[in-house]
Simulated assay, not measured.
Amino acid sequence: MSSSGVTEADFDVRESRECARVDIRGAVDPLSLQADPARKAGFKGALASAVRSGTTGIFTHDVEVTLVWFIEESRRYQTHLVADLDNVLKPILDAVTGVDGIMIDDNQVQSIRASWMTPGPRTGFELEFKALSADDYTSREGLSFVEFDADRCYLVPQAEKAVQDSFVRAYRAALAAYRSMLDEGMAESVARSVLPAARPFPRARLGKFEVVHHADR
């Protein structure tokens, strides 16, 4: 058991690959960003472990997040020890992000809906993560990126090397066309139309993911 008293068993994680959706049911209160570091680390570690065990995929583009926290009205209104709703999301997002998580980086969160409800027979919280497109959820095994500059890394499809190399060449050509259009004085909003549909990631946000520079491909 972690120092927070929370274990992996406190979370029920369900993945729907065909719907590009992950649902998490927590049997404990979410922790605040301002919680004691040891308690927060324990909570995040237990949730991360449950997500790693309960999922095989990862979101590759923007994500919608919905949080419902089940808590008694008297606790919510009449105590000062209960976290504010806006402070409980960051520890959760940190726990589900990374090479063993369901998001590459938490800046993928495009929208958040958060609310609390009186629990009835339940306590804890429910979380839903959903891709904006079903194609934006893929296996996280063997995930890798190709870097073109510090602010632009693209996901390489999980395929044979020849196929991956074709994607790298296509990315390289698209970026060359984009930069050429900018050099010619074209508006960035127009030049952007030639860029890949794939979402770029800054190198600094890719942490422990495999990243290879395009010159080495």
Score class of each variant (00 low, 15 high):
3 S>Q: 08
7 T>H: 06
9 A>D: 14
10 D>I: 06
14 R>Q: 15
16 S>G: 09
21 R>Q: 15
22 V>F: 03
23 D>Y: 00
24 I>N: 03
24 I>D: 04
26 G>N: 07
32 S>H: 09
33 L>T: 14
37 P>T: 11
37 P>C: 09
42 G>S: 07
43 F>D: 04
43 F>M: 07
46 A>E: 02
49 S>R: 10
50 A>S: 01
54 G>N: 11
55 T>I: 03
57 G>R: 05
59 F>Y: 07
59 F>P: 05
60 T>K: 01
65 V>L: 13
78 Q>S: 10
82 V>I: 14
83 A>T: 08
84 D>F: 11
85 L>A: 11
95 A>D: 04
96 V>A: 06
100 D>H: 10
102 I>W: 02
103 M>F: 06
108 Q>W: 03
115 S>W: 08
116 W>L: 04
121 P>H: 10
122 R>A: 15
124 G>D: 12
125 F>C: 06
126 E>Y: 09
130 K>G: 04
132 L>A: 00
135 D>Y: 05
139 S>N: 13
141 E>H: 09
142 G>C: 03
142 G>D: 00
142 G>Y: 00
143 L>S: 10
149 D>L: 09
149 D>H: 15
151 D>M: 13
156 V>C: 01
161 K>I: 14
166 S>V: 03
172 R>I: 02
179 R>K: 15
179 R>N: 15
181 M>T: 02
181 M>N: 06
187 A>R: 08
191 A>R: 00
191 A>W: 01
191 A>K: 02
192 R>Y: 08
197 A>P: 00
198 A>L: 08
204 A>H: 12
205 R>C: 02
206 L>N: 01
207 G>Y: 02
208 K>D: 14
213 H>D: 15
215 A>P: 00
